[in-house]
Amino acid sequence: KGQEIVKVLYTNTDFEYLQSIDRDLKDITYDMDVSYSSNRYIEFNHKGVNKGAGLKKLANLLHIDIQDTIAIGDNYNDLSMIKDAGLGVGVQNAAPGIKPDCDYITMATCEEGAVCEVIEKFVLKGE
């Protein structure tokens, strides 16, 4: 009591059910960022609190053009940073719904070295 709520998470392994919660709460969550993660969570954050905003802030603090960033993700809570990055990457086993917004899909899954694949392909470029 008396403390600000920073984030609300609700868990259920039925993704369709989580989406129905999102639809049912639209009237009261219009000013929030709602996303999904780990194939079992629906996340409610303050508007503007998402990974994309975090990436932009980090790039600004480091004086890096956002176009010179790479974001790698596998689920809906990664989508804002994938869209905001210069190169947005989805891993092979990413949620199907985020893949159309990715610039590149790795051959590897998140358990098989997807980050290494991206570094070799786009940072080291075979060097």
Score class of each variant (00 low, 15 high):
3 Q>M: 13
82 I>L: 06
7 K>M: 07
60 N>F: 11
59 A>G: 11
49 V>G: 01
80 S>Y: 03
79 L>W: 00
71 A>T: 00
68 D>S: 04
51 K>I: 00
11 T>Q: 15
51 K>T: 00
48 G>S: 05
72 I>V: 09
52 G>F: 01
39 N>W: 10
10 Y>K: 11
47 K>F: 09
30 Y>C: 09
72 I>K: 08
39 N>P: 01
69 T>N: 07
89 V>H: 08
82 I>V: 11
62 L>M: 14
69 T>G: 09
80 S>N: 03
87 L>G: 12
74 D>C: 03
26 K>V: 12
54 G>A: 07
52 G>S: 01
70 I>Y: 09
59 A>Q: 09
6 V>R: 04
63 H>K: 11
76 Y>D: 08
24 D>W: 01
35 S>F: 01
42 I>N: 05
90 G>A: 15
76 Y>I: 04
34 V>T: 11
56 K>Y: 05
65 D>C: 08
50 N>T: 10
4 E>K: 15
81 M>Y: 02
27 D>R: 15
22 D>Q: 12
56 K>H: 10
10 Y>A: 14
78 D>A: 06
12 N>S: 12
64 I>H: 01
90 G>D: 11
14 D>V: 12
44 F>Y: 14
73 G>W: 00
81 M>L: 03
36 Y>Q: 05
26 K>S: 14
71 A>P: 08
26 K>G: 07
40 R>N: 13
70 I>H: 09
15 F>K: 14
73 G>S: 12
